[in-house]
Every structure is written in structure tokens, then in C-alpha cells.
Write a protein that binds this DNA or RNA. Structure first.
Lengths: 342, 342
DNA sequence: CTGAAAGCGCTTACAG
DNA sequence: CTGAAAGCGCTTACAG
């Protein structure tokens, strides 16, 4: 029967123990284990490795960090670690990149409130993190606490309201334009938008760009613009309101894939088919987009890529420069968009 | 303009710097900051705090950890950090509990493959974590690498295939029975099951318990048992197959809420109403359950609670004992279940 | 009420 | 080719 407490108090062997057993100095042990042992004889190396194996020794990275002044650890501060499906890919990416570089992530969820964020930064700095990543689920403005400048800093899907930090953002404008052009090119003229949360930056940018594209095609959203909150529920309920409009729209731009899924259900209950009776499109390209029948045309937001690029920069694998870096979005054309019924 | 590199090389003040500025010894600084300063005069304390403020000093937790032999950090090893909505609440809970206890989490996603898990454990131990949490998204068996015993260990939603570790599991059997009884009590006799992945432990346990309840009511699933994979897509497609059965079932037990949502769409396209024409129920109680119209009757799986209890135990706030601890599941009765049409 | 000294487990410049 | 010594930034038992 395992006795965790017991076995963990049995104090772990140190490099001094290894040195003693191998009959060499701690210097030699350190050199061998750090692979800086060009000058050490093979026979000595063997003795060290044998002692390491015999003692089941592992290097104490805390002590090493103290000596080096680097911890090989970065901090990740987020607003909603548990919110799906957005945080998943960003966190996964940050994780994968750090893991590939033999580093680790200390994760703190502060909702990005100023007080909690400040104390998270303090705590991370006290733990000697080499860098701090600030990541938001929905693009938003955050206040980066001043002490954070003591470490390397990068922002993912967020703007700093003061100071000029390296910032990685999705190209929302490009995505919104591509989506609107797609619908116009299919021949839609009565296009409705079930937008997301009115206060969200992404919402207003997408609506702006959509309107700009329609305008240059001699069209307009007119009274076919509704605001929800990016949930399935508001997609369902707003879709019902759209169906009361005259003339009826032929295409529905939903604020995200969740809202599009809600719209599917509302349309089905009205006996309307996608895309024959109504084109439906979304944003995000989350897993449900390909699970819906018909599959959903949507704008892929590069959450994984955002996390990846920011983390690579934070770790110094790519340049870390102040200013905004736009990561491309991609229009995924699938079955849910088609020309309007003539 | 911030120059991260520059400012981070400006070496941080140490407790010795604080001592010098305050005109006291490092001993006194340590005592004051650790709040073990009963015996220190107020005037001396003030001098220390003033020096701390002036230098913007923060304690080096790495050095402190080396001295104490504890890191105030735990490791979290998961199989799918990015999988929604399951990992969210478990990770959130682990985070919240550690944060409340002034600890932090080092997160590693290994897919729980043996090799990656072993090296993650090595790395976490090298970083002197005080404990390691192994968490799986879907309940499964894992191999806990032997060296993990050097730290405190707890398992969330997973069984160890060797050794007897503290293990926190959802009470799947109780949930499945409650759900089946609910349908029987409503008067359903032709009940279909759109189960999840056939190989998953939760799937087989739920099917077993469902059949046991039906049997004791003189009923049976008969040929109304189908296996999917816990996705929206299989909920949609299997629901269509159910609709071809004669006599038609009056209730649908879906493997999870995602499959139930898929079933909603299929039913809507067949012109069938929930619950008047078909009762639909799920498992998980994820956010979509209350977003669907009608709201979904489902079995709440205690993901947050699982993460919370395991982390409290790992941190020593609750007993950490080998053996399985079942966390209750809850039947959430909502609008999607009703008596069959007579 | 306060301080000098040793030590946590490493690494590195230096010496031989 | 290898080792003795100092030091990373803390804390603690001991002394006064």
C-alpha cells in the first residue's frame, strides 16, 4: 500500500550524494548532467550515470533556477480558464509550445480584474517566472500591472490600455469582410445579422465591416440587425424574430457558431431548410461547425495560432516586439451557404 | 516605450538590500515579512516595510522554496486540457482551490500516455511540486508512474491500474438509475438509448444501470440501444435511426447533452416536438442544457466538485486517503421530459 | 529585541 | 581531466 506522506519525507538524494557514491566531485556531477562534459573522461561519466541510476537521483530545478536566475517557467493569466471552446485552443497552444521547449506554465485565472491580476503578477514574479502571457477569451482591453514589466510580457486576444506591449490579435476585420463578400457573391441581398454581445469589441468590428461590404455592393443591413450574447439561446430566439421580417431575409450572419446552432433549431421548427430556404453562417469554427447538418460555413478564428505565436515570442523563439500582430482568420465555406432561392 | 529585456536584467532587490537600507539584519527582514515578528519592535517593523516599499522588493519564492523544501506548487496532469466542456470545471476548481491557498498550478497535458506522463512526472518532481493531480476528461484507467509516489497524489475521474491512490469519481451508477427511474415513473415503456462511445467506462456503467432499472420495472431496452461517440453529430444521426423503429419509442436517453442537442435538431426536422412527441434527456448538465428550448432534463456530473475535493485533499485541507470517493451526481428535471402522449 | 552563521541544492569561474 | 570554494536568496536555530 502506498504511503505518500511517508515516502515523500524520505529525503531525496542530492548531487552531493551522487558525487559521493561515484567517487567524484559535485562539480563533475554537474558538468556531466548538464552535458557540458566534453572534458570529462568516459569512465568518469559512466560512474556518474551509474550513481544517478542507483540513487534514482533527479536534479532539483528549484536550486538550479535560483542559481541561474531563470525558472524555465512562464505565467499564464486568463479571464476564464473554463470557458469553452475559446480558451481550450489558446491554453493548449501555450502549453504545447512551453512543453516543446522544456518549460512549464503556471496558470492563474483572474477574470482579468485589476486587483486579482495585480496580485497574480506579484505572485508569479515572486516565483521567478521568465515571462507572463495575458490571454482573454473575447478580445478586450486589459490593464497590465506595472510590475509585470519586470518579466517578458505578451498579450493574446487583448489590448493593453496603457503601454505598448507585444499583442497578438485575430484579424477580425478581414474575416468579417470575407464572410460578407461570400454572401454578396452568392447573390444574397436581404441579409440579416444576429450579432453577439453589443459591448464586445469583436461584435462592433464585425458589424462595421459587414456594413462596409454591403454598402459597396449597394446593399444595407437595414432593420435586420439584432444583438444577442453569443449563446445558443439568443441564436434560437433572435432567429425567430428574423422570421417575422418582411421581406424575409435569405441569409443569416450569426455572431458565432453557438448562435448559428440555435438558429438551426429555430429554423427547423419553422419547417425551413438550411441552406435551401435560409443560408446560415457563423464565426469561430468550433467543433460544432462540422457536426451540424448541414455543416456550417464560418470564419475560423485562429485561437491555437494566437496562443502559439504569443508563446513562441515570449520564450524568445520569435521576436518579441511591442505592437499588434494580426493573425489571419479564414473563411470556411461549407454546406450551410448557397445562393438564395430564386 | 517598455523594454522588457532591459528592465528584467536590472537585477531585483534581495532581502539583503532591504536589510541594508533599513539598517537591520536579514534575519529581522525575514522575520518581519514572514509575520513571525512578535518579538520585533514596531519601529523596526516600520523601517523594514518602508525599505520594502522603497525598493519595490518582493520575496523570492524560489529561494524560499529551496530553503523550506516545499514549493507551494502542485502539478496537474491531464489528458485533454482543451476539451470542452468537461475539462473546464475540473481545471477551474483545481485552480480556485490552489489560489485560495496561495499555491499555484503547473499544468501539463500528456494525453495520459505512459511515456509523456512519466516525463511530466519527472519534470514536476524536479520542480519540487508538493503534489500531483491526475485528471481525465472521460473516466478512464491510467498508469501512475512509480516516481509520482514521491509527491502526494490524487486522481480525478480516473482509476489507477496499479496501486491504491486517492481517487475521486462521479457517482455514475446513481445518476443513471435516477434518470431511468424518472422516465419509468413518467410512464414511459418504450425507452431508447443513444449511448456514448462503446468503449468508455461511463457508457457501459450507464447502460448497465439503465437496464437494471428497466428490468425491475418489467421493461427492457430491447433493440432500442445504439452507440455513438458523445458528439452532436452522432446524436443527430442516431436519433434518425430511432425514428424508424416500430413501435416508436417515447423517450430518448442520450449519452450526453451534446448528443441530446443533436437529437433535438433531428426531431425538429421530422416535425416532432419535445417533450410532447418525444422525451429527451442527457448527461453532463453542461451550459447548453439550459440553453436548449425546451430546457433539457439531464444528470449533472460534478466536474467542479471532483476537482475541488481532489485538490483540497492534495493540499492537505481534507484527508488524503487511498480508495475511491464517489461524488454525487444530480438529476436535473427540466422541460424536456414529460409523460408519453396517451 | 536583534544579529552572525550555517545551509537548502545547485553551478561556475578559477586553479591545478 | 578534475576539484575546492564561493554564491544564488532565502530561513532558522542559536547566541546575546
Amino acid at each position: 500500500m502506498p504511503r505518500p506522506d511517508d515516502s515523500s519525507t524520505r529525503s531525496r538524494p542530492t548531487s552531493a550524494d551522487v558525487a559521493r557514491l561515484a567517487g567524484v566531485s559535485p562539480t563533475t556531477v554537474s558538468l556531466v548532467l548538464a552535458d557540458k562534459a566534453d572534458r570529462i573522461s568516459d569512465v568518469t561519466k559512466e560512474k556518474v550515470f551509474a550513481a544517478v541510476a542507483q540513487l534514482d537521483y533527479r536534479l532539483n530545478r528549484t536550486a538550479q533556477g535560483l542559481r541561474h536566475g531563470r525558472s524555465s517557467t512562464i505565467g499564464l493569466i486568463t479571464d476564464h480558464i473554463g470557458v469553452q471552446p475559446y480558451s481550450g485552443p489558446m491554453v493548449s497552444a501555450a502549453h504545447d509550445v512551453t512543453w516543446e521547449n522544456r518549460q512549464m506554465i503556471l496558470m492563474v485565472n483572474t477574470t482579468l480584474e485589476d486587483d486579482r491580476t495585480r496580485s497574480a503578477v506579484e505572485d508569479l514574479l515572486a516565483r521567478q517566472v521568465d515571462g507572463i502571457l495575458f490571454a482573454a477569451i473575447g478580445t478586450r482591453t486589459i490593464h497590465v500591472p506595472a510590475p509585470a514589466r519586470r518579466a517578458r510580457v505578451a498579450l493574446v486576444n487583448a489590448f493593453a490600455n496603457d503601454g505598448d506591449f507585444p499583442t497578438f490579435l485575430p484579424d477580425e476585420r478581414g474575416g468579417a469582410r470575407a464572410l460578407a463578400r461570400h454572401l454578396v457573391q452568392l447573390g444574397h441581398r436581404e441579409i440579416a445579422t444576429l450579432a453577439g454581445t453589443r459591448e464586445a469589441w469583436a461584435t462592433s468590428v464585425r458589424v462595421q465591416e459587414t456594413q462596409a461590404v454591403l454598402r459597396s455592393a449597394g446593399l444595407s443591413l437595414g432593420n435586420r440587425l439584432f444583438y444577442g450574447d453569443y449563446t445558443f439561446t439568443t441564436g434560437y430566439s433572435l432567429a425567430q424574430r428574423v422570421l417575422e421580417l418582411t421581406p424575409s431575409p435569405t441569409a443569416l450572419i450569426c455572431g458565432n457558431d453557438q448562435m448559428a446552432a440555435g438558429a438551426y433549431l429555430a429554423l427547423a421548427r419553422h419547417g425551413l431548410r438550411v441552406p435551401q430556404d435560409m443560408t446560415v453562417v457563423g464565426y469561430d469554427d468550433e467543433p460544432v461547425a462540422t457536426m451540424l447538418t448541414p455543416t456550417l460555413t464560418t470564419v475560423r478564428l485562429p485561437f491555437y495560432e494566437l496562443g502559439r505565436r504569443a508563446t513562441l515570442a515570449l520564450l524568445g523563439k520569435e521576436p518579441l516586439e511591442p505592437g499588434e500582430e494580426l493573425i489571419p482568420t479564414t473563411l470556411r465555406i461549407r454546406e450551410s451557404s448557397a445562393p438564395p432561392a430564386s
